[in-house]
Design a protein around this nucleic acid. Structure first.
Lengths: 294, 294
DNA sequence: ATGATTCATGAATTCTATTCATGACTGCAA
DNA sequence: TTGCAGTCATGAATAGAATTCATGAATCAT
Protein backbone atom coordinates (compact mmCIF):
# COMPACT_ATOMS: atom_id res chain seq x y z
CA UNK A 1 0.00 0.00 0.00
CA UNK A 2 1.53 3.24 -1.10
CA UNK A 3 1.87 5.48 1.87
CA UNK A 4 4.86 6.72 3.83
CA UNK A 5 4.61 4.47 6.85
CA UNK A 6 7.25 2.05 5.69
CA UNK A 7 9.61 4.88 4.92
CA UNK A 8 8.93 6.53 8.26
CA UNK A 9 10.13 3.38 9.94
CA UNK A 10 13.27 3.57 7.80
CA UNK A 11 13.80 7.18 8.84
CA UNK A 12 13.35 6.24 12.50
CA UNK A 13 15.91 3.44 12.14
CA UNK A 14 18.50 5.75 10.60
CA UNK A 15 17.86 8.41 13.21
CA UNK A 16 18.19 5.82 15.94
CA UNK A 17 21.48 4.45 14.63
CA UNK A 18 22.73 7.85 13.47
CA UNK A 19 24.07 5.97 10.50
CA UNK A 20 22.65 4.86 7.19
CA UNK A 21 25.09 2.01 7.04
CA UNK A 22 24.29 0.60 10.47
CA UNK A 23 20.55 1.07 10.02
CA UNK A 24 20.76 -0.66 6.64
CA UNK A 25 22.43 -3.63 8.25
CA UNK A 26 19.73 -3.78 10.90
CA UNK A 27 16.92 -3.58 8.33
CA UNK A 28 18.55 -6.04 5.93
CA UNK A 29 18.83 -3.69 2.95
CA UNK A 30 21.75 -1.90 1.32
CA UNK A 31 22.93 1.52 2.45
CA UNK A 32 22.03 2.82 -0.97
CA UNK A 33 18.45 1.57 -0.65
CA UNK A 34 18.09 3.35 2.64
CA UNK A 35 19.55 6.54 1.23
CA UNK A 36 17.04 6.48 -1.63
CA UNK A 37 14.20 5.60 0.70
CA UNK A 38 14.73 8.41 3.19
CA UNK A 39 15.49 10.86 0.43
CA UNK A 40 12.24 9.96 -1.31
CA UNK A 41 10.33 10.42 1.93
CA UNK A 42 11.87 13.85 2.48
CA UNK A 43 10.97 14.88 -1.02
CA UNK A 44 7.36 13.77 -0.69
CA UNK A 45 6.97 15.44 2.68
CA UNK A 46 8.84 18.55 1.59
CA UNK A 47 10.84 18.32 4.81
CA UNK A 48 14.43 17.57 5.55
CA UNK A 49 14.36 15.10 8.37
CA UNK A 50 18.04 14.21 8.60
CA UNK A 51 21.10 16.41 8.45
CA UNK A 52 23.98 14.53 6.91
CA UNK A 53 27.58 15.11 6.29
CA UNK A 54 29.63 12.53 4.55
CA UNK A 55 30.44 10.90 7.84
CA UNK A 56 27.60 11.63 10.18
CA UNK A 57 23.85 11.76 10.42
CA UNK A 58 21.58 13.52 12.89
CA UNK A 59 17.90 14.45 12.90
CA UNK A 60 17.06 17.99 11.95
CA UNK A 61 14.79 19.98 14.24
CA UNK A 62 11.81 18.93 12.14
CA UNK A 63 13.01 15.33 12.16
CA UNK A 64 13.49 15.32 15.92
CA UNK A 65 10.02 16.74 16.48
CA UNK A 66 8.51 14.06 14.24
CA UNK A 67 10.49 11.31 15.98
CA UNK A 68 9.00 12.26 19.34
CA UNK A 69 5.69 10.86 18.18
CA UNK A 70 6.95 8.41 15.60
CA UNK A 71 9.31 6.36 17.72
CA UNK A 72 6.82 5.42 20.46
CA UNK A 73 4.08 4.80 17.91
CA UNK A 74 6.23 2.45 15.85
CA UNK A 75 7.35 0.66 18.99
CA UNK A 76 3.74 0.14 20.04
CA UNK A 77 2.87 -1.30 16.64
CA UNK A 78 5.83 -3.64 16.70
CA UNK A 79 5.05 -4.86 20.19
CA UNK A 80 1.44 -5.43 19.27
CA UNK A 81 2.44 -7.43 16.21
CA UNK A 82 4.80 -9.54 18.29
CA UNK A 83 2.05 -10.23 20.79
CA UNK A 84 -0.36 -11.17 18.01
CA UNK A 85 2.27 -13.50 16.62
CA UNK A 86 2.86 -15.06 20.01
CA UNK A 87 -0.85 -15.64 20.56
CA UNK A 88 -0.92 -17.38 17.22
CA UNK A 89 2.02 -19.62 18.06
CA UNK A 90 0.67 -20.88 21.39
CA UNK A 91 -2.07 -23.12 20.04
CA UNK A 92 -5.24 -23.41 21.99
CA UNK A 93 -8.81 -24.38 21.32
CA UNK A 94 -10.99 -27.31 20.52
CA UNK A 95 -10.50 -29.68 17.60
CA UNK A 96 -13.38 -31.85 16.59
CA UNK A 97 -11.98 -35.02 15.17
CA UNK A 98 -13.84 -37.91 13.59
CA UNK A 99 -12.24 -41.24 12.97
CA UNK A 100 -12.80 -44.94 13.25
CA UNK A 101 -12.05 -46.78 16.46
CA UNK A 102 -9.32 -48.57 14.61
CA UNK A 103 -7.75 -45.33 13.53
CA UNK A 104 -8.17 -43.99 17.04
CA UNK A 105 -6.28 -47.00 18.37
CA UNK A 106 -3.61 -47.20 15.73
CA UNK A 107 -3.06 -43.57 14.88
CA UNK A 108 -4.25 -41.35 17.71
CA UNK A 109 -3.87 -43.18 21.00
CA UNK A 110 -0.15 -43.95 20.64
CA UNK A 111 0.60 -40.21 20.29
CA UNK A 112 -2.08 -38.72 22.45
CA UNK A 113 -0.18 -38.55 25.73
CA UNK A 114 2.77 -36.69 24.26
CA UNK A 115 0.50 -34.40 22.30
CA UNK A 116 -1.54 -33.55 25.40
CA UNK A 117 1.65 -32.74 27.31
CA UNK A 118 2.99 -30.57 24.52
CA UNK A 119 -0.25 -28.67 23.99
CA UNK A 120 -2.07 -28.43 27.30
CA UNK A 121 -4.49 -25.88 25.92
CA UNK A 122 -5.75 -27.99 23.03
CA UNK A 123 -8.86 -30.07 23.59
CA UNK A 124 -9.73 -32.90 21.23
CA UNK A 125 -13.38 -33.82 20.74
CA UNK A 126 -13.07 -37.33 19.32
CA UNK A 127 -16.05 -38.89 17.63
CA UNK A 128 -15.69 -42.45 16.48
CA UNK A 129 -17.45 -43.50 13.38
CA UNK A 130 -16.74 -46.19 10.95
CA UNK A 131 -18.50 -44.36 8.16
CA UNK A 132 -16.57 -41.97 5.94
CA UNK A 133 -17.32 -38.60 7.44
CA UNK A 134 -18.27 -35.59 5.40
CA UNK A 135 -16.07 -32.81 6.73
CA UNK A 136 -17.42 -30.21 4.40
CA UNK A 137 -20.53 -29.77 6.50
CA UNK A 138 -18.25 -28.32 9.10
CA UNK A 139 -19.29 -30.42 12.03
CA UNK A 140 -15.72 -31.67 12.28
CA UNK A 141 -12.40 -29.95 11.92
CA UNK A 142 -10.60 -33.06 10.71
CA UNK A 143 -11.00 -36.77 10.19
CA UNK A 144 -8.93 -39.87 9.74
CA UNK A 145 -9.78 -42.42 7.10
CA UNK A 146 -8.15 -45.25 5.37
CA UNK A 147 -6.81 -44.61 1.95
CA UNK A 148 -6.21 -41.34 0.19
CA UNK A 149 -8.92 -39.92 -1.94
CA UNK A 150 -9.17 -36.54 -3.53
CA UNK A 151 -11.98 -34.60 -2.06
CA UNK A 152 -12.74 -31.07 -3.07
CA UNK A 153 -11.03 -28.44 -0.92
CA UNK A 154 -9.56 -31.09 1.34
CA UNK A 155 -6.00 -31.78 2.15
CA UNK A 156 -4.84 -35.32 2.93
CA UNK A 157 -1.85 -36.05 5.08
CA UNK A 158 -0.63 -39.60 5.53
CA UNK A 159 -0.57 -40.60 9.18
CA UNK A 160 0.31 -44.28 8.97
CA UNK A 161 2.27 -46.67 6.86
CA UNK A 162 0.55 -49.05 4.49
CA UNK A 163 -1.96 -51.23 6.30
CA UNK A 164 -3.32 -54.72 5.74
CA UNK A 165 -6.40 -56.51 6.88
CA UNK A 166 -5.97 -59.92 8.46
CA UNK A 167 -8.50 -62.75 8.22
CA UNK A 168 -8.58 -64.74 11.48
CA UNK A 169 -10.39 -67.44 13.37
CA UNK A 170 -9.92 -68.93 16.83
CA UNK A 171 -8.04 -72.23 17.37
CA UNK A 172 -11.34 -73.59 18.78
CA UNK A 173 -13.16 -72.74 15.57
CA UNK A 174 -10.54 -74.40 13.40
CA UNK A 175 -10.67 -77.56 15.55
CA UNK A 176 -13.99 -78.27 13.92
CA UNK A 177 -13.58 -76.47 10.56
CA UNK A 178 -11.10 -76.92 7.76
CA UNK A 179 -8.75 -73.97 7.30
CA UNK A 180 -9.74 -72.10 4.10
CA UNK A 181 -7.06 -72.22 1.42
CA UNK A 182 -8.61 -69.74 -1.01
CA UNK A 183 -11.12 -66.88 -0.61
CA UNK A 184 -13.65 -69.14 -2.36
CA UNK A 185 -13.48 -71.55 0.54
CA UNK A 186 -14.99 -68.87 2.76
CA UNK A 187 -18.45 -69.72 1.44
CA UNK A 188 -18.19 -72.89 3.53
CA UNK A 189 -17.46 -70.93 6.67
CA UNK A 190 -19.30 -68.77 9.16
CA UNK A 191 -18.00 -65.27 8.40
CA UNK A 192 -18.69 -62.43 10.82
CA UNK A 193 -19.06 -59.26 8.83
CA UNK A 194 -18.40 -55.61 9.57
CA UNK A 195 -21.12 -53.22 8.53
CA UNK A 196 -20.99 -49.61 7.42
CA UNK A 197 -24.26 -47.71 7.50
CA UNK A 198 -24.17 -48.17 3.73
CA UNK A 199 -23.91 -51.95 3.93
CA UNK A 200 -21.55 -54.83 4.60
CA UNK A 201 -17.88 -54.36 3.93
CA UNK A 202 -16.81 -56.81 1.22
CA UNK A 203 -13.55 -58.48 2.04
CA UNK A 204 -10.89 -57.75 -0.57
CA UNK A 205 -8.37 -60.29 -1.84
CA UNK A 206 -5.48 -60.25 -4.32
CA UNK A 207 -2.92 -62.82 -5.42
CA UNK A 208 -0.67 -62.13 -8.35
CA UNK A 209 -3.02 -60.89 -11.00
CA UNK A 210 -6.14 -62.38 -9.39
CA UNK A 211 -8.38 -60.11 -7.41
CA UNK A 212 -11.75 -60.82 -5.91
CA UNK A 213 -14.08 -59.72 -3.15
CA UNK A 214 -16.23 -61.81 -0.85
CA UNK A 215 -19.37 -60.75 0.95
CA UNK A 216 -19.10 -62.31 4.43
CA UNK A 217 -22.03 -64.65 5.22
CA UNK A 218 -22.53 -65.68 8.79
CA UNK A 219 -24.74 -65.71 11.86
CA UNK A 220 -24.08 -62.07 12.77
CA UNK A 221 -22.50 -58.84 11.60
CA UNK A 222 -21.46 -55.80 13.66
CA UNK A 223 -20.92 -52.13 13.01
CA UNK A 224 -18.05 -52.16 15.49
CA UNK A 225 -14.77 -53.92 14.56
CA UNK A 226 -13.98 -54.67 18.21
CA UNK A 227 -17.20 -56.62 18.59
CA UNK A 228 -16.38 -58.49 15.41
CA UNK A 229 -13.10 -59.64 16.94
CA UNK A 230 -14.70 -60.50 20.31
CA UNK A 231 -17.09 -62.80 18.46
CA UNK A 232 -14.21 -64.39 16.51
CA UNK A 233 -12.33 -64.97 19.78
CA UNK A 234 -15.46 -66.81 21.06
CA UNK A 235 -15.27 -69.21 18.11
CA UNK A 236 -18.36 -67.96 16.35
CA UNK A 237 -16.60 -67.74 13.00
CA UNK A 238 -13.99 -66.07 10.84
CA UNK A 239 -13.56 -62.32 10.80
CA UNK A 240 -11.30 -59.59 9.46
CA UNK A 241 -9.65 -56.55 10.99
CA UNK A 242 -6.47 -54.48 10.82
CA UNK A 243 -3.46 -56.72 11.01
CA UNK A 244 -1.77 -54.29 13.36
CA UNK A 245 -4.68 -54.49 15.76
CA UNK A 246 -4.67 -58.28 15.71
CA UNK A 247 -0.92 -58.80 15.86
CA UNK A 248 -0.71 -59.27 19.65
CA UNK A 249 -3.56 -61.83 19.63
CA UNK A 250 -2.02 -63.69 16.73
CA UNK A 251 1.36 -63.69 18.44
CA UNK A 252 -0.16 -65.19 21.57
CA UNK A 253 -1.88 -67.91 19.55
CA UNK A 254 -5.32 -66.74 20.54
CA UNK A 255 -6.17 -66.18 16.89
CA UNK A 256 -5.04 -67.97 13.76
CA UNK A 257 -4.40 -65.92 10.62
CA UNK A 258 -5.56 -67.48 7.33
CA UNK A 259 -5.41 -66.51 3.64
CA UNK A 260 -2.43 -64.32 4.48
CA UNK A 261 -0.96 -64.35 0.97
CA UNK A 262 -4.34 -63.27 -0.40
CA UNK A 263 -4.54 -60.13 1.69
CA UNK A 264 -3.32 -56.98 -0.05
CA UNK A 265 -1.95 -53.85 1.55
CA UNK A 266 -3.72 -50.49 1.40
CA UNK A 267 -2.22 -47.00 1.46
CA UNK A 268 -2.92 -46.64 5.14
CA UNK A 269 -4.59 -43.90 7.18
CA UNK A 270 -4.82 -40.25 6.15
CA UNK A 271 -5.79 -37.22 8.10
CA UNK A 272 -8.20 -35.01 6.16
CA UNK A 273 -8.89 -31.36 6.86
CA UNK A 274 -10.33 -28.47 4.92
CA UNK A 275 -8.09 -26.30 2.84
CA UNK A 276 -8.22 -23.03 4.67
CA UNK A 277 -6.19 -19.86 4.37
CA UNK A 278 -5.42 -19.46 8.03
CA UNK A 279 -6.22 -22.66 9.80
CA UNK A 280 -6.22 -22.63 13.57
CA UNK A 281 -2.84 -23.16 15.13
CA UNK A 282 -4.25 -26.03 17.16
CA UNK A 283 -5.11 -27.95 14.00
CA UNK A 284 -1.68 -27.25 12.62
CA UNK A 285 -0.18 -28.68 15.77
CA UNK A 286 -2.35 -31.81 15.53
CA UNK A 287 -1.46 -32.36 11.91
CA UNK A 288 2.20 -32.01 12.77
CA UNK A 289 1.90 -34.48 15.60
CA UNK A 290 0.03 -37.17 13.64
CA UNK A 291 1.74 -36.93 10.25
CA UNK A 292 3.85 -39.89 9.31
CA UNK A 293 7.52 -38.94 9.53
CA UNK A 294 10.02 -40.44 7.13
CA UNK B 1 10.67 0.02 2.43
CA UNK B 2 9.41 -3.55 2.62
CA UNK B 3 7.69 -3.97 5.89
CA UNK B 4 4.06 -4.37 6.81
CA UNK B 5 3.38 -0.89 8.09
CA UNK B 6 1.71 0.31 4.92
CA UNK B 7 -0.51 -2.74 4.84
CA UNK B 8 -1.36 -2.38 8.50
CA UNK B 9 -2.74 1.05 7.73
CA UNK B 10 -4.80 -0.55 4.97
CA UNK B 11 -6.12 -3.16 7.40
CA UNK B 12 -7.00 -0.43 9.92
CA UNK B 13 -8.87 1.50 7.25
CA UNK B 14 -10.93 -1.53 6.23
CA UNK B 15 -11.64 -2.40 9.85
CA UNK B 16 -12.69 1.18 10.50
CA UNK B 17 -15.05 1.34 7.53
CA UNK B 18 -16.16 -2.30 7.88
CA UNK B 19 -16.05 -2.35 4.12
CA UNK B 20 -13.34 -2.94 1.56
CA UNK B 21 -15.20 -0.83 -0.96
CA UNK B 22 -15.58 2.21 1.28
CA UNK B 23 -12.03 1.95 2.61
CA UNK B 24 -10.75 1.67 -0.96
CA UNK B 25 -12.56 4.87 -1.85
CA UNK B 26 -11.05 6.62 1.12
CA UNK B 27 -7.53 5.42 0.33
CA UNK B 28 -7.81 6.10 -3.39
CA UNK B 29 -7.20 2.57 -4.59
CA UNK B 30 -9.47 -0.10 -6.07
CA UNK B 31 -11.40 -2.56 -3.91
CA UNK B 32 -9.41 -5.31 -5.55
CA UNK B 33 -6.11 -3.73 -4.57
CA UNK B 34 -7.24 -3.50 -0.98
CA UNK B 35 -8.43 -7.09 -1.00
CA UNK B 36 -5.04 -8.27 -2.27
CA UNK B 37 -3.21 -6.03 0.16
CA UNK B 38 -4.97 -7.20 3.30
CA UNK B 39 -4.90 -10.79 2.12
CA UNK B 40 -1.14 -10.58 1.59
CA UNK B 41 -0.69 -9.08 5.04
CA UNK B 42 -2.70 -11.89 6.62
CA UNK B 43 -0.66 -14.47 4.79
CA UNK B 44 2.66 -12.96 5.85
CA UNK B 45 1.56 -12.63 9.46
CA UNK B 46 -0.12 -16.03 9.48
CA UNK B 47 -3.13 -14.40 11.09
CA UNK B 48 -6.62 -13.79 9.91
CA UNK B 49 -7.36 -10.20 10.86
CA UNK B 50 -10.72 -9.72 9.18
CA UNK B 51 -13.73 -11.98 8.99
CA UNK B 52 -15.58 -11.48 5.77
CA UNK B 53 -18.71 -12.64 4.20
CA UNK B 54 -19.59 -11.51 0.77
CA UNK B 55 -21.36 -8.50 2.12
CA UNK B 56 -19.78 -7.66 5.42
CA UNK B 57 -16.44 -7.28 7.11
CA UNK B 58 -15.49 -7.29 10.78
CA UNK B 59 -12.24 -7.71 12.67
CA UNK B 60 -11.51 -11.14 14.06
CA UNK B 61 -10.53 -11.44 17.71
CA UNK B 62 -6.88 -11.27 16.69
CA UNK B 63 -7.59 -8.32 14.42
CA UNK B 64 -9.46 -6.45 17.14
CA UNK B 65 -6.65 -7.01 19.62
CA UNK B 66 -4.13 -5.69 17.12
CA UNK B 67 -6.30 -2.68 16.31
CA UNK B 68 -6.34 -1.62 19.96
CA UNK B 69 -2.69 -0.66 19.61
CA UNK B 70 -2.59 0.01 15.90
CA UNK B 71 -5.35 2.56 15.58
CA UNK B 72 -4.04 5.03 18.19
CA UNK B 73 -0.47 4.58 16.99
CA UNK B 74 -1.40 5.32 13.37
CA UNK B 75 -3.45 8.29 14.47
CA UNK B 76 -0.50 9.68 16.42
CA UNK B 77 1.78 9.29 13.42
CA UNK B 78 -0.69 11.00 11.13
CA UNK B 79 -1.20 13.90 13.53
CA UNK B 80 2.55 14.31 13.92
CA UNK B 81 3.03 14.38 10.16
CA UNK B 82 0.33 16.99 9.80
CA UNK B 83 1.96 19.13 12.46
CA UNK B 84 5.35 18.77 10.78
CA UNK B 85 3.75 19.83 7.50
CA UNK B 86 2.15 22.83 9.15
CA UNK B 87 5.40 23.95 10.75
CA UNK B 88 6.98 23.73 7.32
CA UNK B 89 4.36 25.99 5.82
CA UNK B 90 4.82 28.83 8.35
CA UNK B 91 8.15 30.21 7.13
CA UNK B 92 10.58 31.73 9.56
CA UNK B 93 14.27 32.43 9.71
CA UNK B 94 16.96 34.68 8.34
CA UNK B 95 17.69 35.15 4.66
CA UNK B 96 21.02 36.70 3.70
CA UNK B 97 20.48 38.55 0.48
CA UNK B 98 23.07 40.31 -1.63
CA UNK B 99 22.15 42.70 -4.37
CA UNK B 100 23.04 46.03 -5.86
CA UNK B 101 21.57 49.25 -4.49
CA UNK B 102 19.75 49.63 -7.78
CA UNK B 103 18.22 46.21 -7.49
CA UNK B 104 17.39 46.92 -3.88
CA UNK B 105 15.55 50.03 -4.97
CA UNK B 106 13.86 48.64 -8.04
CA UNK B 107 13.19 45.09 -7.03
CA UNK B 108 13.17 44.74 -3.26
CA UNK B 109 12.00 48.00 -1.71
CA UNK B 110 8.69 48.19 -3.58
CA UNK B 111 7.66 44.80 -2.20
CA UNK B 112 9.33 44.84 1.17
CA UNK B 113 6.50 46.26 3.24
CA UNK B 114 3.96 43.74 2.05
CA UNK B 115 6.44 40.90 2.40
CA UNK B 116 7.28 41.91 5.95
CA UNK B 117 3.59 42.00 6.84
CA UNK B 118 2.95 38.61 5.27
CA UNK B 119 5.94 36.95 6.90
CA UNK B 120 6.60 38.59 10.23
CA UNK B 121 8.97 35.82 11.24
CA UNK B 122 11.30 36.20 8.28
CA UNK B 123 14.32 38.49 8.69
CA UNK B 124 16.23 39.73 5.67
CA UNK B 125 19.92 40.54 5.99
CA UNK B 126 20.50 42.75 2.96
CA UNK B 127 24.02 43.41 1.80
CA UNK B 128 24.46 45.79 -1.07
CA UNK B 129 27.23 45.20 -3.51
CA UNK B 130 27.60 46.17 -7.06
CA UNK B 131 29.91 43.25 -7.78
CA UNK B 132 28.54 39.92 -8.93
CA UNK B 133 28.41 37.89 -5.75
CA UNK B 134 29.58 34.35 -5.53
CA UNK B 135 26.76 32.53 -3.79
CA UNK B 136 28.44 29.18 -3.84
CA UNK B 137 30.64 30.11 -0.91
CA UNK B 138 27.52 30.08 1.16
CA UNK B 139 27.82 33.49 2.74
CA UNK B 140 24.55 34.44 1.13
CA UNK B 141 21.32 32.57 0.64
CA UNK B 142 20.34 34.47 -2.49
CA UNK B 143 21.36 37.39 -4.69
CA UNK B 144 19.89 39.65 -7.29
CA UNK B 145 21.81 40.50 -10.41
CA UNK B 146 21.13 41.87 -13.79
CA UNK B 147 20.85 39.44 -16.61
CA UNK B 148 20.50 35.72 -16.51
CA UNK B 149 23.56 33.58 -16.59
CA UNK B 150 23.91 29.91 -16.03
CA UNK B 151 25.86 29.21 -12.93
CA UNK B 152 26.48 25.75 -11.68
CA UNK B 153 23.91 24.52 -9.17
CA UNK B 154 22.11 27.86 -9.24
CA UNK B 155 18.56 28.62 -10.13
CA UNK B 156 17.66 31.97 -11.71
CA UNK B 157 14.24 33.49 -11.33
CA UNK B 158 13.35 36.66 -13.20
CA UNK B 159 12.27 39.40 -10.82
CA UNK B 160 11.93 42.37 -13.16
CA UNK B 161 10.99 43.15 -16.69
CA UNK B 162 13.62 44.04 -19.25
CA UNK B 163 15.66 47.00 -18.13
CA UNK B 164 17.48 49.73 -19.94
CA UNK B 165 20.24 52.09 -19.00
CA UNK B 166 19.72 55.79 -19.64
CA UNK B 167 22.48 58.24 -20.51
CA UNK B 168 21.79 61.63 -18.95
CA UNK B 169 23.22 65.07 -18.29
CA UNK B 170 21.92 68.09 -16.45
CA UNK B 171 20.33 71.01 -18.32
CA UNK B 172 23.13 73.17 -16.88
CA UNK B 173 25.74 70.90 -18.43
CA UNK B 174 24.11 70.95 -21.81
CA UNK B 175 23.92 74.79 -21.72
CA UNK B 176 27.62 74.77 -22.30
CA UNK B 177 28.09 71.47 -24.19
CA UNK B 178 26.60 70.17 -27.45
CA UNK B 179 24.19 67.26 -27.00
CA UNK B 180 25.90 64.08 -28.29
CA UNK B 181 24.18 62.55 -31.33
CA UNK B 182 26.09 59.29 -31.45
CA UNK B 183 28.08 57.29 -28.87
CA UNK B 184 31.23 58.44 -30.67
CA UNK B 185 30.45 62.01 -29.68
CA UNK B 186 30.93 61.03 -26.04
CA UNK B 187 34.69 61.28 -26.48
CA UNK B 188 34.16 65.03 -26.52
CA UNK B 189 32.31 64.98 -23.25
CA UNK B 190 33.05 64.56 -19.58
CA UNK B 191 31.69 61.13 -18.77
CA UNK B 192 31.32 60.07 -15.14
CA UNK B 193 31.91 56.34 -14.94
CA UNK B 194 30.67 53.61 -12.66
CA UNK B 195 33.28 51.19 -11.42
CA UNK B 196 33.09 47.57 -10.42
CA UNK B 197 35.95 46.24 -8.35
CA UNK B 198 37.04 44.59 -11.61
CA UNK B 199 37.13 47.89 -13.51
CA UNK B 200 35.08 50.54 -15.22
CA UNK B 201 31.73 49.52 -16.66
CA UNK B 202 31.85 50.11 -20.42
CA UNK B 203 28.65 51.73 -21.65
CA UNK B 204 26.88 49.54 -24.19
CA UNK B 205 25.13 50.85 -27.29
CA UNK B 206 23.17 49.31 -30.15
CA UNK B 207 21.33 50.72 -33.15
CA UNK B 208 19.98 48.43 -35.81
CA UNK B 209 22.91 46.17 -36.56
CA UNK B 210 25.50 48.48 -35.07
CA UNK B 211 26.80 47.75 -31.60
CA UNK B 212 29.62 49.37 -29.71
CA UNK B 213 30.88 50.06 -26.26
CA UNK B 214 32.43 53.19 -24.84
CA UNK B 215 34.74 53.47 -21.89
CA UNK B 216 33.61 56.60 -20.02
CA UNK B 217 36.39 59.21 -19.72
CA UNK B 218 35.92 62.02 -17.30
CA UNK B 219 37.11 63.84 -14.20
CA UNK B 220 35.78 61.21 -11.77
CA UNK B 221 34.30 57.72 -11.51
CA UNK B 222 32.40 56.16 -8.59
CA UNK B 223 31.70 52.67 -7.36
CA UNK B 224 28.25 53.81 -6.27
CA UNK B 225 25.58 54.53 -8.91
CA UNK B 226 23.84 57.03 -6.67
CA UNK B 227 26.94 59.13 -6.39
CA UNK B 228 27.33 58.97 -10.14
CA UNK B 229 23.88 60.49 -10.55
CA UNK B 230 24.46 63.11 -7.83
CA UNK B 231 27.52 64.27 -9.75
CA UNK B 232 25.54 64.39 -13.02
CA UNK B 233 22.86 66.47 -11.33
CA UNK B 234 25.60 68.92 -10.32
CA UNK B 235 26.57 69.38 -13.94
CA UNK B 236 29.90 67.64 -13.73
CA UNK B 237 29.22 65.55 -16.82
CA UNK B 238 27.23 62.78 -18.46
CA UNK B 239 26.45 59.58 -16.68
CA UNK B 240 24.42 56.40 -17.01
CA UNK B 241 22.08 54.52 -14.71
CA UNK B 242 18.91 52.45 -14.79
CA UNK B 243 16.24 54.23 -16.74
CA UNK B 244 13.67 53.30 -14.15
CA UNK B 245 15.71 54.95 -11.42
CA UNK B 246 16.13 58.14 -13.43
CA UNK B 247 12.60 58.38 -14.78
CA UNK B 248 11.32 60.77 -12.06
CA UNK B 249 14.29 63.13 -12.48
CA UNK B 250 13.92 63.09 -16.26
CA UNK B 251 10.18 63.67 -15.96
CA UNK B 252 10.85 66.72 -13.77
CA UNK B 253 13.35 68.08 -16.26
CA UNK B 254 16.17 67.89 -13.75
CA UNK B 255 18.05 65.54 -16.13
CA UNK B 256 18.12 65.33 -19.91
CA UNK B 257 18.25 61.91 -21.53
CA UNK B 258 20.48 61.56 -24.59
CA UNK B 259 21.37 58.81 -27.10
CA UNK B 260 18.04 57.20 -26.22
CA UNK B 261 17.72 55.29 -29.50
CA UNK B 262 21.21 53.84 -28.95
CA UNK B 263 20.47 52.30 -25.60
CA UNK B 264 19.49 48.61 -25.72
CA UNK B 265 17.40 46.74 -23.23
CA UNK B 266 18.76 43.95 -21.08
CA UNK B 267 16.91 40.90 -19.71
CA UNK B 268 16.41 42.57 -16.36
CA UNK B 269 17.05 41.43 -12.78
CA UNK B 270 17.20 37.84 -11.69
CA UNK B 271 17.15 36.33 -8.25
CA UNK B 272 19.78 33.61 -7.89
CA UNK B 273 19.77 30.94 -5.26
CA UNK B 274 21.42 27.56 -4.81
CA UNK B 275 19.72 24.49 -6.09
CA UNK B 276 18.92 22.68 -2.89
CA UNK B 277 16.84 19.64 -2.14
CA UNK B 278 14.81 21.16 0.64
CA UNK B 279 15.33 24.88 0.65
CA UNK B 280 14.14 26.81 3.68
CA UNK B 281 10.50 27.81 3.52
CA UNK B 282 11.54 31.42 4.14
CA UNK B 283 13.56 31.47 0.94
CA UNK B 284 10.69 29.91 -0.93
CA UNK B 285 8.45 32.67 0.35
CA UNK B 286 10.92 35.37 -0.71
CA UNK B 287 11.28 33.88 -4.17
CA UNK B 288 7.55 33.80 -4.50
CA UNK B 289 7.22 37.40 -3.41
CA UNK B 290 9.92 38.79 -5.72
CA UNK B 291 9.33 36.72 -8.84
CA UNK B 292 7.97 38.61 -11.80
CA UNK B 293 4.37 37.64 -12.34
CA UNK B 294 2.87 37.42 -15.79
C1' DA C 1 -36.27 -15.65 -9.44
C1' DT C 2 -33.60 -11.67 -10.46
C1' DG C 3 -30.67 -7.74 -10.02
C1' DA C 4 -27.51 -5.07 -7.24
C1' DT C 5 -23.68 -5.01 -4.34
C1' DT C 6 -19.60 -6.63 -2.09
C1' DC C 7 -15.51 -9.48 -1.62
C1' DA C 8 -12.10 -12.80 -3.94
C1' DT C 9 -8.92 -14.07 -7.30
C1' DG C 10 -5.97 -14.92 -11.46
C1' DA C 11 -3.53 -12.68 -15.04
C1' DA C 12 -1.50 -8.68 -16.83
C1' DT C 13 0.45 -4.21 -16.31
C1' DT C 14 2.49 -0.39 -14.05
C1' DC C 15 5.45 1.39 -10.94
C1' DT C 16 8.55 1.46 -7.25
C1' DA C 17 11.98 -0.57 -4.10
C1' DT C 18 16.33 -2.04 -4.38
C1' DT C 19 20.80 -3.14 -6.17
C1' DC C 20 24.98 -2.15 -8.57
C1' DA C 21 28.55 0.76 -9.67
C1' DT C 22 30.73 4.65 -8.67
C1' DG C 23 31.69 9.40 -7.14
C1' DA C 24 32.28 12.96 -3.49
C1' DC C 25 33.57 14.10 0.93
C1' DT C 26 35.43 13.69 5.64
C1' DG C 27 38.46 12.06 9.14
C1' DC C 28 42.49 9.82 10.48
C1' DA C 29 47.05 7.88 10.29
C1' DA C 30 51.55 7.93 8.38
C1' DT D 1 50.66 16.89 3.17
C1' DT D 2 49.06 12.73 1.28
C1' DG D 3 46.77 8.45 0.95
C1' DC D 4 43.35 5.41 2.57
C1' DA D 5 39.14 3.89 4.75
C1' DG D 6 34.53 4.68 5.53
C1' DT D 7 30.12 6.89 4.82
C1' DC D 8 26.52 9.09 2.15
C1' DA D 9 24.61 10.29 -2.62
C1' DT D 10 23.06 9.27 -7.08
C1' DG D 11 21.97 7.52 -11.82
C1' DA D 12 20.78 3.52 -14.36
C1' DA D 13 19.03 -1.00 -14.48
C1' DT D 14 16.44 -4.79 -12.67
C1' DA D 15 13.38 -7.54 -9.95
C1' DG D 16 9.40 -7.83 -7.73
C1' DA D 17 5.36 -6.19 -5.81
C1' DA D 18 1.34 -3.04 -5.89
C1' DT D 19 -2.45 -2.32 -8.50
C1' DT D 20 -5.77 -2.77 -12.13
C1' DC D 21 -8.80 -5.32 -15.05
C1' DA D 22 -12.03 -8.74 -15.76
C1' DT D 23 -14.88 -11.77 -13.81
C1' DG D 24 -16.91 -15.13 -10.53
C1' DA D 25 -19.28 -16.34 -6.11
C1' DA D 26 -22.25 -15.20 -2.49
C1' DT D 27 -25.63 -12.45 -0.09
C1' DC D 28 -29.54 -9.48 0.34
C1' DA D 29 -33.55 -6.93 -1.14
C1' DT D 30 -37.31 -6.69 -4.22
Amino acid sequence: MRNDLGELAAFAAVAGERSFTRAAGRLGVSQSALSHTVRGLERRLGLQLLARTTRSVAPTAAGAALLEDLAPALERIERSLAEAQQRRERPAGRIRLILSRTAAQLVLLPKLAQFARAYPEIVLDVTTSNDPADLVAGRYDAGVQIGEFIQRDMIAVRVSRDVRLAVVGSPEYFRSHKIPRTPRDLKDHACIGFRFSSGLYRWEFEKGRRAMTVSPQGPVSFDDPDLVIRAVLRGMGIGTAMEATLAPLIAKGRLIQVLEEWCPTFPGFFLFYPSRRNQPAALTALIQALRLKE
